[in-house]
Design a protein around this nucleic acid. Structure first.
Lengths: 221, 221
DNA sequence: ACCTGAACACCGTTCAAGT
DNA sequence: ACCTGAACACCGTTCAAGT
C-alpha cells in the first residue's frame, strides 16, 4: 500500500503550515522579521510565492501563526507547591527566556497571536496563579496584561540588542553632548547604550514588576 | 526687496522637514503608521515622491525624525518642590498622555528617535529626578529605560485600542472556549478584551511601576 | 537649492490554469 | 488537494536631468 510521501523527488519536504512556520522562524532568527516576506519565504522553501497562499490565507494570518508558534515554546512548568509570587516570577522568566531567543516575536505575540493555543495556555496559567493569590478577575486581568507587556518591553528595550556598531555610535554621540545641558546623559552614556550583563537587566525588570504586584496584593489585606 | 516665498503659486507651502513631518503626523493619526509611505506622503503634499529625498536622506531618517517630533510634544513641566516620586509620576503621565494622542509613535521613539532633542530633554529630566532621589547612574539608567518602555507598552497594550469590531470578535471567541480547559479566560473574557475605563488602565500601570521604584529606593537606606 | 522623469528591484495578492 | 504563470497595484531608492 502506498502512502502520501512527505518529501518530493528533490528531497524537499512537502509544504504544510508547520513546515512554512519552521522556515519562517529560522529566517527571522537569521535576518530579522523584516526579511520574512512571502516571496523570500517561498524562495527559501524552493517553491512559488503563490504556493504559500494555499496554506495561509494571507500574510497577516501567517504572522499570527508565527507569534503563536513562539509563545507555544514557553516552558510553563512551575512548582505548584511554591508561593504564588514565585510561580508568577517563574512563568515570566520563562517567557523572557523564549523571547530572548526570538527577539523579533514580541510585537507579533501582543498584536495578533491571541487566539493561538500557546497564548491561551500561557494566559490561563497566569490568570490561575493570580486568581489563586486573591486578585479579582479584573485585577488579575490587568496584572497579567501588564506583566506580559513588561516582559516584551524588557526584551525590546535591552540596550545593545540592535547592531553593536550602531550602539557604539550612539554612545559616542551621548558622550560628546554639551555637558552643561545634558549632564546626566553624558554621565550615563555607557550604561545607557551598552549592556554588559543582560541577565541582570532582565532580573531587575522582572523583580521590579513582581515586587509591585506583591505590594499590591499585600495592600488588599 | 523680495524674500523667498514660503508658498508656491498654487498655495501649497514650500517643502521643508517641518512641513513633511506635520503631514506625516496627520496621516499617521488618521490612518495609522503603515499608511505613512514616501509615495503616499508625497501625494498628500502634492509633490513627487523623489522630492522628499531632498529633505530626508531615506525613510528611516524620516521615521526617526517623526519619533523625535512626537516625544518633543511631551510636557516636561514638573513641580520642583514636589517629592521626587511625584515628579517621576508626573513626567510618566505626561508621556502617556502624548502617546495616547499618537499611539503609533511608541515603537518609533524606542527604536530610532534617541538622538532627537525631544528625547534627550526627556531622558535628561528623568535621569535628573532619579539621581536626585539617590539612585546611582546605573540604577537611574535602568529605571528610566524601564519606565519609558512601561509607558510605551501601557499604550500599546490597552485593550480595545485596535479595531472595536475586532475586539468584539475576540471576546466572543474567548467566551466560547471550553470552560474545563480555560476556566479563567472564559471568566475574564470581558475585562480581557474591553477597556471601559482607559484612565484607570493607565493609572494602574503607572502606579504599579512607581510603587516598585519607590520600594526599590526605600530598600537602599 | 530644490524638484521631476524614468527606471530598478522589490512587495502582497488575485485569478485562472495546470496536475 | 496542491501548486504554478501571468498580471496588478503597490513599495523604497538611484541617478541624471531640469529650473
Amino acid at each position: 500500500m502506498t502512502q502520501a510521501p512527505d518529501h518530493d523527488a528533490a528531497g524537499r519536504p512537502r509544504l504544510s503550515q508547520a513546515v512554512v512556520l519552521s522556515e519562517a522562524v529560522a529566517l527571522a532568527d537569521r535576518e530579522g522579521l523584516a526579511a520574512v516576506t512571502i516571496r523570500r519565504l517561498a524562495q527559501d522553501l524552493g517553491v512559488t510565492p503563490m504556493a504559500l497562499y494555499w496554506h495561509f490565507r494571507n500574510k497577516s494570518l501567517l504572522m499570527a501563526a508565527l507569534g503563536g508558534r513562539i509563545i507555544g515554546e514557553v516552558d510553563l512548568d512551575v512548582d505548584d507547591g511554591a508561593h504564588w509570587s514565585a510561580q508568577f516570577h517563574t512563568v515570566l522568566r520563562a517567557l523572557v527566556t523564549t523571547l530572548r531567543r526570538h527577539p523579533w516575536a514580541g510585537p507579533l505575540i501582543t498584536s495578533s497571536a491571541c487566539e493561538s493555543p500557546g497564548y491561551l495556555t500561557a494566559l490561563e496559567k497566569v490568570l490561575a496563579i493570580l486568581r489563586g493569590a486573591g486578585f479579582s478577575t479584573e485585577e488579575a486581568t490587568a496584572v497579567s496584561r501588564h506583566a506580559l507587556s513588561t516582559a516584551m518591553s524588557l526584551v525590546a528595550g535591552q540596550p545593545g540588542r540592535t547592531s553593536p556598531d550602531g550602539t557604539e555610535e550612539v554612545r559616542r554621540y551621548y558622550e560628546t553632548l554639551p555637558r552643561e545641558r545634558y549632564p546626566h546623559i553624558v554621565e550615563a552614556a555607557g550604561p545607557l547604550t551598552t549592556c554588559d550583563d543582560p541577565d541582570s537587566h532582565y532580573g531587575f525588570g522582572l523583580d521590579l514588576m513582581v515586587a509591585g504586584v506583591v505590594a499590591m496584593a499585600a495592600r488588599k489585606r
